[in-house]
Design a protein around this nucleic acid. Structure first.
Lengths: 219, 219
DNA sequence: GTCTATAAATGGATAGAC
DNA sequence: GTCTATCCATTTATAGAC
């Protein structure tokens, strides 16, 4: 006997279909697993177990394990984008603004080790998973424009020297903030020092702030 | 009929058993494959194909895939160790010595992308493969002693300011040299700029040399 | 120490029902 | 859009001969 739609609604309904919510939950679980195990080391069953969904559902939404990883990367980059957009540096003098920018970058990296591992994983695989993505490039390089304008402002104010390439400055800032998190495990083995010890974290923050301000200072 | 050892020697001999050579060849091939594919992505058959050996031979020498990866890591760290040992900075004034140290670090990283990928892979896996190794720590942290003495010398010469932690300085130098190689793929996608373009490489070298010297400069 | 052959398990992906 | 059940390629690892 054919069920009517009324009977379907009446019979003990499972979790209602909510594709956006499902998609979101899969992305969150996948982020954790990929960050923990790398791309090949991650296994789809483990993601399934975390989300309480099934493999076919994942493949329905993301087409393949690679598609899922690509979606995770696009998703995490959005977080950094939002931080950069929320930067409000206009009110501050150039040196104070630069200090704030470096500190926020430092803190964001320190608080998002998962993000850092994912980017490491992406680089190990030659960034092929995001190679085709046009959505990442324009919005994420906004930070370069912000940096460039801030440097110009410092030059006009007579505080900063001229001729510093904004991308090189970004490289100087990000390399430190990224590396101290990404490579903390091998550092601990080799140098017997915990880069995450709270007192030392504060000192490291001052190191990169100081290095950047001295790098830009005139004379 | 049982073969005598003379008959064995006479009959078309395969490559003679040379365990050290076999071990070396396996390590070299494994380094390439692990660097290219990560730990889980690498497959032992691919290593076998490169070396012209067999899987049981690999398992005989290294016990497991993990054991092989650990051996590769210990092996590549030795290269960096040799560079650091060969540093001869005594003749130079402190600032010139520091410049040389930074430039050599920069160049070594630039010339060894495989080494960098392997360390990234090790960190993604929490450095568990080298966690137990006591051979790595003492010899590799020699660089910290060198740095510390060089900073002291600069302070005595009145060139450098006091109070700089040698490990933080090492972090500043290495983070830049490492990151510009390790993260070049995602950078290319996001910022549309090739960090390996020869003219730009020279400029980056000057950026980190300048940043370090300005970081240390008195006043 | 190194080989051939194969065991044993894992894990990406899909067919087909609902 | 999501489920159950399963296929099948891949791949770590080893038994046993030489």
């Amino acid at each position: 006997m054919k069920k009517t739609s009324v009977e379907r609604l009446a019979s003990a309904p499972r979790a209602p279909h909510d594709p956006q919510r499902t998609r979101r939950a899969i992305l969150d679980a996948a982020r954790i697993v990929f960050a923990e195990k790398g791309f090949s080391g991650a296994n789809v069953d483990e993601i399934v177990a975390r989300v309480q969904t099934t493999k076919p559902t994942i493949y329905y939404h993301f087409r393949s394990k690679e598609g899922l990883f690509a979606a995770v990367l696009e998703d995490v980059y959005a977080g950094m984008r939002d931080i950069e957009r929320s930067l409000d540096l206009q009110e501050l003098p150039a040196a104070a603004a630069m200090r704030k920018l470096v500190e926020i970058t430092f803190d964001y990296h320190a608080e998002h080790p998962d993000w850092i591992r994912l980017i490491s994983v992406a680089n190990i695989h030659g960034a092929k998973h995001i190679a085709g993505s046009e959505s990442l490039a324009p919005s994420n390089s906004a930070i370069i424009v912000i940096l460039r304008e801030l440097v110009y402002r410092g030059v006009r104010e007579g505080l900063f020297r001229d001729g510093v390439d904004a991308l090189h400055l970004h490289l100087l800032i990000n390399s430190f903030c990224f590396y101290r998190v990404s490579n903390r495990h091998t550092w601990k083995v080799i140098f017997k020092r915990d880069l995450e010890a709270p007192e030392d974290v504060e000192a490291q923050r001052e190191v990169i702030v100081g290095a950047v301000l001295r790098f830009l200072a005139r004379g």
